[in-house]
Design a protein around this nucleic acid. Sequence first.
DNA 1: TCGATATATATACAGTGTATATTTGACGAG
DNA 2: CTCGTCAAATATACACTGTATATATATCGA
Lengths: 219, 219
Amino acid sequence: MPTSSKSDKRRTLTSAKIIEAALTIADTQGIETLSMRKLATALNVTAMSMYNHVANKDDLLSLMLDHVVSEFELPNKDGPWQDMLRRRAHSMRRAFLRHPWAPTLLISTITNGSHTMQDTNATLGCLINAGFSYAAADWARNAIDSHTFGYTMQELNFPVEPDKYKAAAAHYLPEIDKDKYPYLHSATEVLIKGEYDGITQFDFGLDLILSGLSPDNSQ
Amino acid sequence: MPTSSKSDKRRTLTSAKIIEAALTIADTQGIETLSMRKLATALNVTAMSMYNHVANKDDLLSLMLDHVVSEFELPNKDGPWQDMLRRRAHSMRRAFLRHPWAPTLLISTITNGSHTMQDTNATLGCLINAGFSYAAADWARNAIDSHTFGYTMQELNFPVEPDKYKAAAAHYLPEIDKDKYPYLHSATEVLIKGEYDGITQFDFGLDLILSGLSPDNSQ
DNA sequence: TCGATATATATACAGTGTATATTTGACGAG
DNA sequence: CTCGTCAAATATACACTGTATATATATCGA
């Protein structure tokens, strides 16, 4: 009898498998180390095989990004619109912390994957249903996403673990000229003593925006 | 007599000239087209010559970034701290529009160029002098910069010219399934009719943050 | 005038994405 | 069972990348 095609050398490659392996490499080793050859090796396949399933590397990256967006929590639940948008923003930040390479690519790429469209649609819908005009909803979403992207990207460029971040600050301190940059110097000293709490600081800016928004305060 | 060293083939290359040429290429043709060989050709020099003046490509990029930061307006003038920070944020946005490749790199790189340190020092100083604690000043600066980076990066990924942006929206409209994504569909329709005003929308989010901040609203 | 030194160049290498041509294997029809 | 067909995997090759290393050369101080 012929061997089942399942365990065969053939037919085993799918775009889903490629995306999964690519995400693993990007998450664990960094997006800059992700090459088509390396990805192929991880899949026990040659580089060109993958071109039967993804158009090119850019296409692969778009598919990876749409997967990341699929991890965003859709603002579909009941509750005040502020809570729904806050939950979505929190889930975005967590997704970006899981996939540190994603926000940079996501914000500099026009993506039209289905999850991305679903996310935008649901977020706008949440605001529209709260009484925002389409224009106001667009502005509100823009302000919230600007904070989410901007904050998280700054956070990612930071040694997150408390030990490491204090050590890094202590390492940079002597390089900061106390006379030229007195405030920066003092701020770094304060940083070394203090605690870093990413989510609290994230919410600080987010709440400034959310509490300022209302269905009739724009245009 | 020997020819003046000015017009000679030698001694004509400096890191400043390299940075200048690199900025021109990145601004006009895109950062992704900037290769060491291409840059060398623009300078009538071989690629390796430049390695006498910059350590490597990453070093060159850092130098380019510090130049971009030098275009930020330092919050040194008199006036309310909100105005100073708004002027700085506006100047940051304008610098990013001039150098569209910069924010992505700037936010994902730890830079310690002198202009960068001067900017951070002056911004913190502005807030400290307004009565903020060091911790509160750090949080405030973080919120403002998150918005500035996040908003501008979204804006850059957008067809800025009114004609083009309406045309792009009209182009995407038929690809948006009206039943699956009703809000997104309607929002795009509204977008086509409306006007896009980058700076007004930027100020919308910025003012939400600035008007929420005060020297004693964060621990 | 003569090293010494700094700077420009030449060459080479390992790595990249991917176009093109070829081989391979599974499957349906006779 | 034996083909032909067709999709998928592979092999090869090309232009391009950053840059290590070795060499050549022009300028300046003694």
